[in-house]
């Protein structure tokens, strides 16, 4: 009995030792020399491999960063979800001064909720915006409207987008959004835009909450809050900073020019302009808004 135990222990142990030697030799032979800094920089990155930087995952960016640091210039590389904090840390690691990156956020540009743009048809099929978009005009008849199926919610790696069951529209949670741009790529109707978070702690920002380029009358038929291209906001803004432009019946607010004064918000006859703060209420415009709402 004892003999048996000894023999089996010895033979198994011998086999194990043999393999260990083989494995060691192989690992030494085929070792790939990797810059240890790549690994360390990867550790500093958020590690979610979202790809927003344009590289295949965080290690990809880390590799590019190390390479760029060796050549002496790391500008042009950034980690959108990590933001300036992360980049600052990495800059310190390499001994570079990093310019502070603008904090940005994903903004939905559609107000076609179930109450503003009621469903005209019933969609039956896979819960995928991409498929619904390739199939037909969409549930509420607006060819630019949100399809309410939440491809953005699925695409968001930070759970920063939630579909609101009451409106049908997605909502961006500012605390969680890292502006990685996954939603921008996921939306088949290009409804998301990465915009600066805006001034101050209150993150004052203003944007046109619509992408519809159809003539005003047609757009309004499907949606109460569509931009009808009337140009009132452009005229208001022209006296201030000329941040609003009009193209194809659709206004656009340049976030880099906009000073978030909010004066364009109340003049919009269809309430198509959104602001993150309470806009000023000039007497005249106030009356008009009240009329449209009534």
């Amino acid at each position: 009995m004892n003999e048996l135990l000894i023999y089996s222990a010895l033979s198994l142990g011998g086999v194990a030792a043999g393999f260990a030697v083989v494995l060691y030799v192989i690992s030494q032979r085929f070792k790939v020399e990797e810059d240890p800094r790549i690994d360390e920089v990867t550790q500093m990155l958020p590690g979610i491999n979202c790809g927003a930087c344009g590289f295949a995952g965080c290690s990809g960016l880390a590799e590019a960063l190390v390479e760029a640091a060796d050549s002496g210039d790391v500008s042009g590389l950034s980690c959108p979800p990590g933001g300036s904090e992360t980049m600052k840390q990495i800059g310190e690691y390499f001994g570079f001064e990093m310019g502070s990156t603008h904090k940005t956020i994903a903004v939905l540009r559609c107000g076609g909720s179930c109450s503003n743009a009621p469903a005209k048809t019933q969609y039956q099929g896979p819960s995928s915006c991409a498929i619904a978009h390739s199939l037909y005009v969409g549930i509420n008849g607006c060819p630019h409207s949100c399809l309410w199926l939440g491809d953005c919610e699925i695409a968001c790696p930070f759970d920063a987008i939630v579909m609101n069951p009451d409106t049908g529209l997605p909502e961006v949670i500012p605390e969680l959004c890292t502006s990685c741009g996954a939603c921008v790529r996921a939306c088949p109707r290009d409804l998301f835009e990465i915009r600066p978070r805006g001034k101050g702690k209150a993150e004052r920002r203003v944007w046109i909450n619509c992408r519809n380029t159809q003539p005003g009358g047609v757009a309004r038929k499907n949606c109460k809050v569509a931009c009808i291209g009337c140009g009132k906001c452009v005229r208001v803004c022209n006296d201030i900073v000329q941040a609003i432009s009009m193209e194809n019946n659709l206004a656009y607010i340049d976030p880099h020019k906009c000073i978030a004064c909010g004066k364009c918000v109340p003049v919009c006859p269809t309430n198509a302009i959104m602001a993150t703060f309470e806009p000023p209420k000039p007497k005249q415009a106030n009356k008009e808004t009240a009329d449209t709402q009534a």
């Binding site: 469903a119 005209k120 048809t121 019933q122 969609y123 039956q124 099929g125 498929i131 199939l135 037909y136």
Partner: peptide
């Protein structure tokens, strides 16, 4: 009535 739309 609301029409149902789906793929073929």
């Amino acid at each position: 009535q609301t029409l149902v739309v789906s793929g073929s």
